[in-house]
Write a protein that binds this DNA or RNA. Structure first.
Lengths: 207, 207
DNA sequence: GAAATAAAAGGAGGATGCCTCCAGATAAAT
DNA sequence: ATTTATCTGGAGGCATCCTCCTTTTATTTC
């Protein structure tokens, strides 16, 4: 399923199957506005954090507030739609790192990349907050991607016996993401790197 | 100085010095309302998080919204006033732990206590966010207390050579506090304990 | 004790944000 | 060209924020 998102990928099949109610092509203006809103929201969120006014986003995008709500019934739906790409990209990086680096190093690099994403997006932090906090159903699929990624890397490193970890790896992400929402931007980037090193050292020491 | 707080401790001296404009005793109702508001806000914040409506707090306290704003010009001022006690208590615990435990253990215990405070207050998290994030001038003195506390404990443990730490200890608090604002409540309590153990192990390994 | 005065109380009001709802506009289907 | 499902845009109800200013009240002065 697609969460609360409105777009559905393939309607053509349905039209062929049985004689269900006639399915018509989605209107062009709808899709256009949907993309326009996401684009606008992305920049506004990046500027003002993900608590920016939805009415302002609609205003800047040049559409009515009703249009925004039609496409994205909740703030979460909008935020989620925006960052779905980023999330997928992050998850993909885990795969790629796993294939090209030794387990522990892959984990370390991915954690660094995770923090970079969170910091640079500045607004993604709140997203990941909810994502990783599991408060919103909407993020379920994105959350699964991230959880899968971190578990993959940790499991690999644990399998070789290089590290031990007696906790949910997700909680490490919570700390790293949480720190970003506290500390202001780029400063956290550096701090998190140090923190990651200490954590890795700590997991090694637990052997 | 007292931040933006309204209360000033001793006015008597001023009355004696020189013949400045006559200074009068602070009005009784003012101080009464100030305390009443803090008491009310404390419970409301505990219930609904620190984003609860200020008008609701005023309503429950039985005073006008104007009165609330007179005493606490900003939301931060109110929140800060409420948690100043808690912060001082936390800082005091550092002293006491330092005197009764070996350095590393004292540090560990204090970090655990820090997390407990943040989690149980549930609303203190946002406080500490800003506190430790340094976004608000209002928190300056409370922040100093916390910073002093953690520095004391870390320095002691570093001095014995038991651990090494190449980063600002404050950033560790940021991670721990940030995690609390992400994860919901008690769950983070446990996770943070594990995290603290790993961090300590990591700092030991850096020796 | 009464008048004067500095300070506090309280709420009306303008601004903004959230979200719902629906009349009118418009793109796809016939 | 007409029909029809879908989309648009904004008015409107409600909540909150914060400011400003009038009225009230505690303290001081006489």
């Amino acid at each position: 399923m697609e969460g609360a998102s409105v777009y559905q990928g393939d309607f053509s099949e349905m039209a062929e199957k049985s004689d269900g109610p006639t399915v018509r092509k989605p209107r062009a203006d709808a899709e256009r506005n949907r993309l326009l809103l996401m684009e606008t929201a992305k920049t506004v969120f990046a500027d003002k954090g993900s608590s920016a006014s939805l009415e302002e986003i609609a205003r800047i995008a040049g559409v009515g507030i009703g249009t925004l709500y039609r496409h994205f019934p909740t703030r979460d739906a909008l935020v989620s739609a925006i960052y779905r790409n980023e999330t997928a990209q992050l998850a993909a990086a885990a795969q790629s790192l796993a294939e090209t680096h030794p387990p522990v190093e892959a984990l370390r690099l991915w954690l660094v990349q995770f923090v970079d994403y969170v910091v640079t997006k500045h607004g993604m932090s709140e997203v990941l907050d909810s994502l990783v906090g599991g408060t919103s159903e909407l993020y379920a699929d994105s959350a699964d991607l991230i959880i899968g990624a971190v578990n993959l890397l940790v499991d690999r490193a644990v399998a070789t016996g290089e590290i031990r970890l007696a906790m949910d790896p997700l909680d490490i992400l919570r700390a790293l993401a949480g720190g970003a929402s506290v500390s202001c931007g780029p400063a956290w980037r550096e701090a998190a790197r140090q923190l990651i090193d200490i954590l890795i050292a700590g997991m090694r020491a637990n052997r």
